[in-house]
Design a binder for these strands. Structure first.
Lengths: 202, 202
DNA sequence: ACTATGGTGGACTGTGCAGTCCATTTTCGG
DNA sequence: CCGAAAATGGACTGCACAGTCCACCATAGT
């Protein structure tokens, strides 16, 4: 064998990552044990440490990367093409739907505060996710400006940062209270204010 | 002795709670051990379980309550008297200052996702904190309306919810990235949009 | 002073969990 | 086929940590 991993090996590895992600969402990164993950993925200790020699931390980083990619992917195709108010509304709906379905189990939320603090790897992943997310929002705002739907003096980056914070906060509150009212309020208000910024200047 | 706790006892109890709070902020609720707390507060196992018979969970709930009270207290006197735009700006400054000083250690953040999920007690505390916080913001908006600085058709509750989400998100991002730019953007944008809502309608 | 109750210290225990190790089976190149 | 490398299963180890237990000290009421 030349490569490090055979097809079977790769399949097992991804099975572990995806299964671990599910378990972590359900139980939180703190209380989820390797045995939980093994049981849920029908694998053994041997396999887990075969694919993740550094143990739990390495696995958690892999899961974090997987979840981070997932977050943005779930918002497509809307997030990538926010060039009209309709697109923004649709995107809003997707975000709310996604997080409402998720309920109080957040893929990154647990990693956010638990591993993110300790291992620099996860922290970098979260930072990159936030950055890409914000960039997409800023790009959307600029598209609105290009389309003449929004005046040029609106600061796309600051607006995007505020919107991102609003979403994060809404999700955060959803996680602690189980209610999505704040996420809705934050998104609705954010988009509405963006619109108002357009009308006010025009 | 009549009461359950003597003066000395009460002093020790609060020493444990406050010391535990410090340790939890520093290490996170997951990785902080009872021994850490004991070392930091110069107490012994015997004392800890004397004052918190149910063990770690009970202590964590006490810490959560303590921290929650602290959060709102730190924002006084501004939060209690948001009757002018100046008051809002000052409040904004206090919030940013507080969380910037805190850096990436959040008192409730760790409890938010870690204990809040598992024990219903902590969850209730967080929910109550958010509720009181939001009520204060809503009250402030209504004071602006009463003072004629804001039109009556602004929905105080939705605005307050959005603002609260913005703050939470800003703090959340501050925790994961170490940068306060989003918190600033969220607060500035939130207050600015509130002002704009006033001007637009008038 | 003495005695009951509360406060304090720390050794001890049990367990849950990450991580190790090796024996066995499967896969793949030649 | 056959040998080597990869994949798999699971018993075993060690330890960190929550929680127990009990012996000793301090204080307050009579």
């Amino acid at each position: 064998m030349r490569g490090e991993l055979t097809a079977k090996g790769r399949a097992t590895r991804t099975r572990i990552v995806e299964g671990a992600a599910a378990v972590l969402r359900e139980k939180g990164a703190a209380s989820a044990t390797l045995d939980d993950i093994l049981a849920h993925t029908s694998t053994s200790k041997g396999q887990l440490f075969h694919y993740f020699p550094a143990g739990k931390d390495e696995l958690l980083v892999a899961v974090a990367q997987f979840e981070a990619d997932q977050v943005l992917e779930d918002q497509q195709p809307y997030l990538g093409c926010l060039d009209s108010w309709e697109a923004w509304e649709q995107w809003r709906d997707v975000v709310i739907k996604r997080y409402e379905a998720q309920g109080d189990q957040c893929p990154l939320g647990s990693l956010f505060l638990q591993i993110g603090r300790s291992t620099p790897g996860t922290r970098a992943i979260v930072i990159e996710l936030l950055h890409r997310w914000q960039e997409s929002l800023a790009a959307g705002i600029r598209e609105l400006q290009a389309a003449g739907l929004l005046p040029a003096d609106v600061d796309a980056d600051v607006r995007a940062a505020a919107l991102l914070a609003a979403i994060q906060g809404g999700v955060s509150i959803l996680l602690s209270t189980g209610r999505s009212t704040h996420l809705r309020a934050a998104l609705d208000q954010g988009i509405e204010d963006l619109r108002r910024a357009g009308r006010a200047a025009v």
